[in-house]
Simulated scan of single mutants.
Amino acid sequence: MEQPNNPLHGITLKAILNFLVDKYGWEELGSRINIRCFNYEPSINSSLKFLRKTPWAREKVEKLYLKSLK
């Protein structure tokens, strides 16, 4: 399915998370998006698990990612 207006099309959640962690680090990420998986013993896998089950948190991560690209 073509999604020409979706800037996230074709980008995995893992790639987004890795980009944000590389750019900000866990501490800064946790202060920008205050969710437990970023602030307490953060890891890519535990964060992915949480974000896949939690639409509101995933939305915040995606918004930050798009803002960070500009």
Rank of each mutant, 00 (worst) to 15 (best):
M1K: 03
M1L: 12
M1W: 09
E2M: 10
Q3E: 15
N5I: 14
N5D: 15
L8A: 06
L8T: 06
H9F: 14
H9E: 15
H9C: 10
G10W: 07
I11Y: 03
I11D: 06
I11T: 08
I11C: 05
T12D: 14
T12E: 14
L13V: 05
K14M: 03
A15W: 01
A15F: 05
A15H: 05
A15I: 02
A15E: 15
I16T: 08
L17V: 03
N18F: 10
N18V: 15
L20W: 12
V21Q: 11
D22H: 05
K23M: 14
K23N: 09
K23W: 11
Y24H: 11
G25D: 10
G25C: 05
G25P: 01
W26M: 09
W26P: 02
E27Y: 05
E27N: 07
E27H: 03
E28R: 07
E28D: 13
E28P: 00
E28Q: 14
L29Q: 08
S31C: 03
S31W: 12
S31A: 05
S31T: 13
R32K: 15
I33G: 12
N34I: 01
N34F: 08
N34P: 00
I35H: 04
I35G: 02
I35T: 04
C37W: 03
C37S: 09
F38S: 08
N39D: 07
P42H: 09
P42K: 04
P42R: 08
I44D: 10
I44W: 09
I44R: 02
S46V: 12
S47L: 07
L48H: 01
L48E: 06
K49Y: 15
F50P: 00
F50Q: 08
F50I: 07
F50E: 12
L51E: 10
K53A: 14
T54D: 11
A57N: 08
A57F: 10
A57W: 10
R58K: 15
R58C: 14
R58P: 00
R58E: 15
E59V: 07
E59D: 13
E59K: 13
E59H: 10
K60A: 04
K60R: 11
K60V: 01
V61T: 08
V61Q: 02
E62A: 09
K63F: 07
K63D: 11
Y65P: 00
Y65T: 03
Y65D: 09
K67F: 12
S68V: 03
S68L: 01
L69Q: 15
K70N: 11
K70A: 06
K70H: 06
K70D: 07
